[in-house]
Write a protein that binds this DNA or RNA. Structure first.
Lengths: 253, 253
DNA sequence: GTGTTTATCGTCAGGCAGACGACTATGATC
DNA sequence: GATCATAGTCGTCTGCCTGACGATAAACAC
């Protein structure tokens, strides 16, 4: 590493951007905010903001997450908090031209959250909403009446795409899919998470055998529920296991 | 994202650090450089440097890789170049205290290279060398006569550890292990790569069946070699497949 | 009660991995 | 040149896991 001659390095702005995913109505959705100022004024974008001087990157991401959703992020290692979401670093985007005004390096983070009430529009965004990732990726989240179809701001389509791909692959070999579920959930609800994230249909019987047979994945709470209709289903909580071995298999691929 | 009021965001220095891995003498080794200036003067560190004003992050990483090793990085998508190495972004480290002098955010990259001649000490490093990752992680690469045992500089032990873990897991489900091999290699050489990276012994017969039976993983070149002693072995090149399905299975875990 | 929906248990066949035997082809050693 | 050591390659067998189902159970809507 070079010596820190102050004239030797250019100054960068560093931001965090968030890919916040959830499953609503059988669809994988992401949190999008509408930009209030140029550039890309009026366009949908991922939530994010500047990292503060004395703030760690993960702390900045957690702060933005709270500001936008009220969700409290928790480390994978620390005990799960109520209303908590999974948060992890995704990747860093630093193309010199990604922001037309100046050199900005954005450290994108991925958050997985259970289905939530409508988001609160936070900070500088005119509004915020959940939108299906397909819609966000193909035409920037068009969906409101009279709204112009336009891609996401900056390189946020790329970031979102990378985040979705990370989520899709990570639920294969980890228990992360439970992060999309409420604290107690049924096997069927977990299966619908997999189906929404992967966009495939899974056999309920084989899925049931697989998840209940994987040690540490699910622990029964004793209760049952009938909120999905049909025969009452057992309720489970996420077990201690974080890595699934052998993994869940995604059809096709 | 906030408006770009120039007083609203603090300036950061952005660097790239490299975890360059190779397999030498049946051991997974990483490239380490000795720091020439404080802080951590005289200690071993990962190669790296500042990102230039108009330089993409991946371009900065590729530039540092050439400066340190002479290796030419290639995209996973683009055709393989002679003497090329695999290069990918690893993670970004931005703890406010990770550098005692100022706020530095480092975008770490992971490079996988075939066994190379001795590295050239580049730029500001007094010297550079390959060292087994175990040694680097436990006592900072102590190994030369009379050298003091000391951890790697900055948070480079953490970065190296993350890079090694990435490599260990990625050769499970991708054909990346071939990046550690010369352009033509035998099944046995590829197996020794897996054994070195994972630190386990693999059954030669089952390994042979697995890799030759995975479509697109290996393509025979027709030639044979006897450089390892014993019966001559068929030579292969890396096939077009990048994802192994089903993956290689790491024993134990 | 009948039909619908969802949950859960079972069965069966095919595929793949681990364990390991057997044979082949080279160089090294006596 | 016979023997040995080393490494490569092909087969066999067994057990586990998965995918494709059938069948039963327990709720709700009419």
């Amino acid at each position: 590493m070079s010596p820190y001659d102050p004239s030797a390095f250019p100054p960068f702005a560093v931001t965090v951007d968030l890919v916040v995913l959830t499953v609503r109505r059988h669809a994988l959705c992401a949190l999008a905010v509408r930009r209030g100022e140029p550039p890309f004024q009026g366009r949908w974008a991922l939530p994010g903001g500047f990292v503060k001087v004395d703030e760690d990157l993960s702390a900045a991401a957690a702060r933005e997450l709270v500001e936008e959703t009220g969700l409290c992020a928790h480390d994978p290692d620390s005990p799960v908090q109520a209303n908590g979401a999974h948060l992890e670093q995704l990747a860093t985007y630093g193309d010199p031209k990604r922001d037309p005004r100046m050199r900005v390096v954005s450290v994108a983070h991925l958050a997985l959250a259970p289905d939530l009430p409508a988001p609160r529009a936070g900070g500088d965004a005119n509004s915020a909403r959940w939108a299906p990732v397909d819609a966000l990726l193909t035409h920037g989240g068009y969906g409101r009446e009279g709204e112009q179809a336009a891609p996401l701001a900056f390189d946020h389509a790329q970031i979102l795409s990378d985040g979705v791909e990370r989520a899709r692959s990570k639920i294969e070999y980890s228990s992360l899919a439970t992060a999309f579920c409420p604290p107690e959930f049924t096997v069927g609800e977990l299966r619908r998470v997999y189906e929404a994230v992967w966009g495939v249909a899974l056999d309920p019987r084989n899925f049931h055998r697989k998840v209940t047979g994987t040690p540490g994945f699910l622990v029964p709470t004793g209760g049952t529920t009938t909120r999905q209709g049909g025969r009452p289903a057992q309720l489970f909580r996420a077990g201690g296991a974080t890595l699934l071995n052998p993994p869940m298999l995604r059809p096709d691929v």
